[in-house]
């Protein structure tokens, strides 16, 4: 695989807070998903790759160079930042035209028009950005990143704030960019969104790389972890015994008439529980997954 972005033993801290810790990775063409909960260090990593931040330790190279030392390389990089702040006094067209001029493009008007068409904002091109919806702001940010046809794209939470229809459009655009052989890194804290765009996934948590590789392998690792489920019932002891007997759970705790069970195979458990309830007549009032949020997934992977 041709490496376009190389991150070697990179650490970044702000005072006492470690944002990225001894991170190493190599990224090549195609779409790579950068997945992690809020505060995981995704934005810091993007900013270091883009040359907006310098690592305290380690090196970041884009096409073999440090962007901070080689601003000419920005011709090959498109960056869609997470921040929603834009030049609200400009129209979408003016904003893209400005970006095209600053990139020194030979035909800035044509480039702006193409980018507007790509993100389907042609109708809104004369509207002030200040009047744009969140989804439209995301699209104009993506348009400015695509404007100069870059080889590498860094997209920080590009789907944030977009409605379902706009998400479909943005996902299609990102997938197409990867298929064209560009290096695209797209961040999100929602696994299923990244799955739809990215072939490779990087999972980071608390500034560390937790897992990397094909998204299917990572998803299996995530789904293989023990799940804790809270069951509200008036017959806790009987239900615990039956669940253990049928091997639906691998561990159990009874507290205040509620069961907290540890489940190895969620599919088996969620299929078996209703059958058991019907067969035995045990009344189950509540079924609550205790660690199905992304944060707990990452905690598990870190362990």
């Amino acid at each position: 695989m041709k490496t376009t972005i190389s991150v070697k033993n990179v650490s970044k801290w702000y005072g006492q807070v470690v944002a990225v810790s001894d991170l190493s990775l190599e990224i090549g063409p195609g779409v790579t998903g950068l997945l992690g909960p809020n505060g995981a260090g995704k934005t810091t990593l993007f900013k270091m790759i883009a040359g907006l931040l310098t690592p305290n330790q380690g090196t970041v190279r884009v096409l073999g160079h440090s962007l901070r030392a080689s601003p000419q390389l920005y011709r090959k990089l498109g960056f869609c930042p997470e921040t929603e702040n834009l030049y609200d006094f400009m129209t979408g067209l003016e904003f893209l035209r400005l970006n095209a001029d600053l990139h020194g493009l030979a035909h800035p008007d044509e480039a702006a028009q193409r980018a507007l068409e790509r993100v389907q904002l042609v109708k809104e091109r004369e509207k002030k950005i200040g009047a744009y919806s969140r989804g439209m702001r995301q699209r104009i940010k993506l348009a400015q990143a695509l404007l100069h046809d870059p080889e590498i794209l860094l997209l920080d939470e590009p789907l944030k704030g977009a409605d379902p229809t706009q998400r479909v459009l943005l996902i299609e655009i990102i997938r197409a960019l990867g298929e064209q052989g560009r290096t695209v890194i797209v961040s999100s804290h929602v696994l299923h969104e990244v799955e739809r765009m990215a072939r490779e996934i990087l999972l980071i948590h608390r500034g560390r790389l937790v897992a990397s590789g094909d998204f299917r392998a990572i998803r299996e690792a995530i789904y293989d972890r023990p799940h804790r489920v809270l069951l509200g019932t008036s017959e806790a002891k009987r239900l615990a015994a039956l669940l253990t007997e049928r091997a639906l759970i691998s561990g159990v705790t009874i507290s205040d008439g509620e069961l907290i069970v540890e489940v190895r195979d969620p599919a088996l458990f969620y299929n078996g529980l209703p059958r058991l309830v019907v067969e035995t007549g045990i009344r189950v009032e509540r079924v609550v997954g205790l660690d199905e949020d992304l944060e707990s997934v990452f905690r598990y992977l870190v362990q």
């Binding site: 601003p71 960056f79 930042p81 921040t83 834009l86 030049y87 990139h103 020194g104 400015q144």
Partner: peptide, 15 residues
Amino acid sequence: QNQTVVYLYLKPLAR
């Protein structure tokens, strides 16, 4: 302060 500087900084311009 409002981070729009990234739209200027990430351009192939002399610093």
